[in-house]
Amino acid sequence: MKKIFTVLVLLFTATNFWSQRSQIIAYIDMEYILENVPEYMQAQNTLDTKIAKWKNNLDKQERHIEVLKSDLANEKAILTKDLIEEKEEEIEIKQVELRRLESLYFGPNGNMFLVRKQLVKPIQDQVYNAIQSIAARKKYDFVFDKSSELVMLYSNKKYDISELVLSSIDRTRLSEEKKEKINKRSEIPTEDLTERQKDLIEIREEAKDKKVEAIEKRVEENKAKKVAIAEKRADLIKKREEQRKILREKKKRLEKERRGKKENN
């Protein structure tokens, strides 16, 4: 109903404009255009792979939480109050971590948004720039997207400028590739460089190496931190197991003492 209302409003507006002067209208099929831009399909495949990986991580965390809940429900009758609270706290921590990961991956400013912005948006911008350029050159008053939510009750193929947009994108790509080739050809051979130019190149290479070293150092530091956290967690688990063992032994001893008292009585 909402779509029909939108179409009626647009038709009414177009009719209003038509009474003043002739309007030139065109349309594009955005899905068709993007499917025929190789860079977009590569970017979309990369994004889909990352999304599948993130969803898999969340599924693993969720299954682990369900296992912890099930184990607690089965063991609750034989656990002490402290151990029950400890397990409940562990489950709560895992649930908070799961929500944090969900937000990190799929939140408003999460990884999916950032990766899409990095990979897909530049290509979409390229398409929109091509549309605007063609619309300005051909003097179109309106350019509609056939694949959007707007319902097109009829569309004449001669007003479809999708192929024109693709041709414009191809020309831009070829122009950029040509410039890149010219720049490569215009590079000065190493033997023709002056000593000062060679020194500058060497300084830049050293700066790059230092930057790489700094990044590698940060990676190693992060690895060391992760190892330290893992060791700390292992120690905590070991201590918990020891406490549980002590509690079990204490429980057995108390049970044995109670049975001994009953036999004496």
Score class of each variant (00 low, 15 high):
K139Q: 06
I246E: 12
V115F: 11
I134K: 01
F17S: 06
A77R: 04
S167R: 02
R21K: 14
G260I: 03
D141M: 05
R259F: 07
K87P: 01
R248Y: 15
Q126Y: 03
I246Y: 13
T6Q: 08
I229D: 12
N183W: 10
I33Q: 00
L174V: 05
R259V: 03
I24N: 13
V227Q: 03
D29R: 04
R137E: 13
K2C: 05
K225M: 04
K232Y: 04
V115P: 14
L104W: 09
E85A: 08
K81W: 03
L254A: 11
T6Y: 03
L58M: 14
K50Y: 14
Q197K: 01
E242Y: 01
Q20S: 13
L166V: 01
R233W: 00
R204V: 03
D71G: 10
E187S: 15
E85G: 10
T6M: 09
K76F: 00
R196V: 10
I237S: 09
L254K: 09
R248W: 15
E75N: 12
K146Q: 12
E39L: 13
K262M: 12
K2I: 07
E90D: 02
I201N: 12
A234C: 00
N183C: 06
T190Y: 10
K76R: 10
K157F: 06
E191Y: 01
I93F: 08
R204M: 04
R233E: 05
E221N: 10
N264S: 14
I24T: 08
D160V: 01
L47D: 00
Y40P: 01
E177C: 04
F5Q: 14
E213G: 02
N57H: 07
D209R: 15
S22K: 07
I51E: 05
L47G: 00
S19D: 08
N57P: 00
E257Y: 07
L68C: 06
T190P: 04
L119A: 02
Y105R: 02
R259S: 08
E205D: 11
Q243K: 15
L166S: 01
V96R: 13
E191M: 02
K184G: 14
S155H: 14
E205N: 07
I201K: 15
L104V: 09
D209S: 10
S186L: 15
K198R: 03
A130D: 01
Y140A: 01
N129H: 06
I188R: 11
K211M: 12
I229Y: 05
L247Y: 13
Y27V: 06
S168A: 12
K225V: 06
K223N: 02
I182Y: 13
K211V: 10
L8P: 03
Q197N: 04
M30D: 09
D125I: 05
R116V: 10
V96F: 11
E221C: 07
D199G: 14
V151K: 04
Q20E: 07
S22E: 11
M30A: 15
D192C: 06
K184V: 12
D209G: 03
I93Q: 12
E88F: 00
R100G: 05
R258F: 02
E257K: 09
